[in-house]
């Protein structure tokens, strides 16, 4: 069994490097909120940015980020590296990530188990891959290249999916566990994605979480999905479009019970609300984290 608290051994999922991100809740940084954040200095654990939105040469995005970074820990979240892709990683894109990493010293760096580029075309979406020996070797090789180029460990995020592949021979959980074991990377556990994929593919999100290799988890993501249907069957869309969906919260608690408190991001990318609305969800996650920390302390004392 996993211990209910962080293991004392050095753990690549929880680096001690610069700008360490605390085991608190944070928010995705949106341009709509720059000014209010700088003026009001809200209390939260960290901000997370999509790396690709800060890859210009200069201008307002980098200027705002510089000011906000002075006051908050930062998590750098890439959305375009295509780590799951068949083709080689884009060396120029890796260099841009390296430069952001150098300049802003984020406490965490994460990317996705997905592909987004094929033969030079970039689809601006996180696309799925089959899980088998071939794709496993490819993803591990790409993560090695990323970690070598950036000089740090990264976290890999589980995707939201709408279908599975006949060519898959390994479960997603086993696939991620093997990637972490072979590459030394940590994992970003998106609990909303676990729930979305579970509903969409007829699998039990609780069983997924119970099997997940929690010792590798360095961050959790939570978000609100959109509901649709497919011939009378529920179809959940990973839309990042609302408050964290109600059914996700119990699974978040269930995950924390196994992995202990870890930095937790509230993601809200479309129909971005007033800062106060987003911050309310951040505080809600913080309360769950405190509760989990208390339980962990209690368990340790017991």
């Amino acid at each position: 069994m996993q211990p209910p608290t962080m293991p004392p051994i050095p753990n690549p999922a929880r680096p001690n490097g610069h700008g360490r991100v605390p085991a608190r809740a944070g928010a995705g940084l949106k341009p709509e909120h720059y000014a209010e954040i700088v003026e009001t200095r809200p209390d939260l654990g960290f901000f997370e940015i999509h790396a690709e939105n800060y890859m210009g040469a200069g201008g307002p995005p980098l200027a705002w980020l510089t000011r906000i970074r002075e006051a908050y820990p930062l998590s750098l979240h890439g959305v375009g590296l295509s780590i799951g892709g068949e083709g080689p990683l884009d060396a120029a894109h890796l260099d841009r990530l390296r430069e952001l990493n150098r300049r802003f010293e984020p406490g965490l760096f994460s990317e996705h188990l997905a592909w987004s580029t094929h033969e030079g075309k970039y689809f601006n979406d996180l696309l799925p891959l089959p899980y088998n020996a071939d794709t496993l070797a490819r993803v591990v090789m790409h993560i090695d290249q990323v970690q070598t180029r950036l000089g740090r460990t990264m976290l890999l995020e589980n995707p939201a999916s709408y279908a599975e592949f006949e060519a898959s021979t390994i479960s997603e959980v086993d696939f991620l566990a093997e990637i972490a074991a072979r590459s030394g990377c940590g994992l970003l556990l998106d609990v909303s994605n676990v729930y979305i994929s579970g509903i969409n593919n007829g699998r039990d999100p609780g069983a997924y979480l119970d099997a997940f290799p929690m010792r590798h988890v360095g961050e959790i993501h939570l978000s609100g999905y959109a509901e649709d249907e497919d011939g009378g069957i529920p179809l959940l869309i990973d839309a990042h479009v609302a408050r964290v969906s109600d059914p996700v919260w119990p699974y978040y608690r269930r995950a924390l019970a196994r992995c202990g408190p870890v930095p937790t991001l509230i993601e809200w990318d479309n129909d971005v609300p007033a800062w106060a609305v987003l911050h309310a969800d951040v505080r809600r996650a913080d309360a769950v984290l405190r509760e989990a920390a208390g339980l962990s302390d209690h368990a340790r004392v017991a």
Binding site: P130, Y162, A163, E164, F165, E166, A167, S168, I199, N200, N201, G202, R203, D230, G231, I233, L235, I237
Partner: peptide, 16 residues
């Protein structure tokens, strides 16, 4: 090669 164990349509899922 797409599979929808929950019983939906592969075309519908791909359209997402």
């Amino acid at each position: 090669g797409l599979r929808v164990p929950a019983g939906g349509s592969a075309d519908r899922r791909f359209s997402v």
